[in-house]
Write a protein that binds this DNA or RNA. Structure first.
Lengths: 199, 199
DNA sequence: CGAGTTATGTATTGTTCAGTTCAAAACGCG
DNA sequence: CGCGTTTTGAACTGAACAATACATAACTCG
């Protein structure tokens, strides 16, 4: 019927995501997005209705990829609850070590967006982040409760508080990483964090 | 000799700091800075040589204010080491609860800048943040060692790791706050964090 | 009061921004 | 092949950006 696209929308979205991740929303220009995706401006505006729309879809793509992978680790019942949280931390450390640009860690797009969002107001992105946090907290709570049953978590704190703590700890590790902390340092932070769970 | 300024440089710097804190570096326009400070463009460019320079001085002002106040709490030898860390957390929680705009916590300018900095490259700001982190870690390490002596901190981890952990925890609390966590939630995160120190 | 100096307001600079326009190119289908 | 539809590239739009130029205002000191 008509001229077909000569690019893969998913690939373009992934490239855009990487750019936003690296530079942040405000600092990313539409020109940057053209270069990163290899698309012309027309193709971008034909496919995504605005920079903001593209950002929101990139963020959704990121959340989908990352959180799904992390939750899979948390739900792997072959290991104890504490070991699953340990594995989650290891995953975070690996991610921070791996994703770097200009010698600096890129951190995490959800954390970066949470921080940058206080400035902008993109209620759609805010809603996505809230839903993601809620999803993560739900699973973390369940893991903590399971850990109490299997004996790997002995903290007397209620599961909600512990889940919040674990989630905050991940954010703290990501910020520390962006602040220059190396792998060894992140690993030691993770270890001390786990101490709080075995009380 | 000449016409005197009719504004207070310190006040202007403070207003600029607040704006950068609220909106971030990229999202703050020179127009925003004029309105926030009440100065004309000429006065701003006459006093500070560029937006970046103004930002760096605002950041220095923030670090000077905040870190100094926090370190004062940490060095108050009237209380045990653990209590001082508790007081530090309370201070962070108060700050997050207090500084809000548009219903959202502003977080912390150093954390916000650390995150946004991965994008830009302002080596001067980066150096300031590194020095600040180093300063905080030094004091935290000393407090942890003191806590081991006075018995209020029983964690067997080495002081450096514990200090890193505490610093990361603060970052995590600030991100959580920007993500919508309320005072009660932040307080519970702080409590669980302290559990890691009393092992 | 007037010469010298600095601060300030207004107008303007050139650049970059997100987004649009439009004609030409590239396909599917009859 | 050629019509209808969509994609694509290049040129362009007006607005916002950081920063400057310059004339005038405001002050100190002689």
């Amino acid at each position: 019927m008509a001229r077909p696209r000569k690019f893969d929308e998913e690939r373009a979205l992934d490239a855009a995501m990487r750019t936003f991740w690296e530079k942040g929303y405000e600092a990313t220009s539409t020109q940057d997005l053209c270069e990163a995706t290899g698309l012309g401006r027309s193709s971008i505006y034909n496919t995504f209705k605005s920079k903001q729309d593209l950002f929101e879809r990139a963020l959704a793509h990121y959340i989908d990829t990352m959180t799904t992978a992390q939750l899979a680790v948390l739900e792997d019942t072959r290991h104890s609850a504490a070991d699953r949280i340990r594995a989650l931390f290891a995953m975070v450390v690996d991610g921070e070590t791996e994703h770097r640009a200009g010698g600096r860690s890129l951190g995490c797009l959800t954390v970066n967006t949470t921080v940058e969002l206080a400035a902008r107001d993109d209620s759609r992105a805010a809603r996505m982040l809230e839903r993601d946090t809620a999803r993560r907290l739900t699973v973390l709570r369940a893991v903590v409760e399971e850990g109490r049953r299997d004996g790997s978590i002995t903290s007397p704190r209620d599961a909600e508080a512990v889940a919040r703590f674990i989630n905050a700890a991940i954010g703290g590790m990501r910020v520390s990483s962006q602040g220059g902390a190396d792998r060894t340092t992140l690993e030691s932070i993770a270890e001390v964090t786990l101490d709080a769970l075995t009380h």
